[in-house]
Design a protein around this nucleic acid. Structure first.
Lengths: 111, 111
DNA sequence: TCAATAGTTCATCAAATTTTGAACTTTAAG
DNA sequence: CTTAAAGTTCAAAATTTGATGAACTATTGA
């Protein structure tokens, strides 16, 4: 479970991580909800979601916290703001036009 | 020679266009010099440079002005600022760490 | 202990990206 | 008209990316 140091975060990797529509949907969800768990997202296959989360994490865009068997994913806002001021905010605003990946669970239970 | 309208510019295409190190070098050069001509850039092959310029142009990041046989490339700063406020500025600042693609010509003649 | 849950890792495959060189188009110059 | 210069376009090769299912690891609960 690798997270790059804040200083090692590389622009081209961050932009590549953010350039995929699926991952922009994830970013939107994280920006709105604060933290996401894999199982709460509607997604084709577990392994593909795992792949996208790894892309974001390895680029330094997200941090993954492990709690039991669950992974809690959040944006590395401060690290990104320090390294690339303004970048994440502008992307988050623009990502509002991408669809959410919300599960029924989110709608029906109160979490 | 297609340029998307300002309103049609798509975030994921812009981020994909900006996510390549070669193109970040081009962006840096354009931000510093205002306009670039293909022949002024040190580059492996003409066709590959043409390809990278097309990527930037088709994503809406640059505008290409034709003058005789030469192409003059410039950033679409206003269009991008209107559509994704702050995005281009933050990328330009961060792109300063990518190498220039300067030719000898730029150094020796005064253009 | 046994089974279920949550997610990772691996192999594979399809699709998209990047690079190269050759052929082509257009403009300018002699 | 002929030639050269500046780029574009096309086709082929190399690389990378993204998707899928099966096998695997680790934690939780009965």
């Amino acid at each position: 479970m690798l997270h790059p140091d804040a200083e090692q975060i590389e622009l081209s990797l961050v932009l590549a991580a953010l350039s995929d529509p699926t991952r922009l949907s994830i970013i939107r969800q994280l920006a709105e909800d604060g933290e996401a768990m894999c199982r709460r997202l509607d997604f084709g296959s577990k392994s593909n979601l795992s792949y996208h989360f790894a892309k974001l994490r390895e680029a330094g865009v997200t941090r993954t916290r492990i709690e039991g068997t669950a992974r809690h994913i959040s944006l590395r806002r401060e690290d990104l703001d320090a390294r690339f001021p303004g970048l994440l905010d502008s992307v988050i605003k623009a990502a509002a036009s991408y669809p959410r990946l919300t599960t029924e669970a989110d709608v029906t239970d109160g979490a």
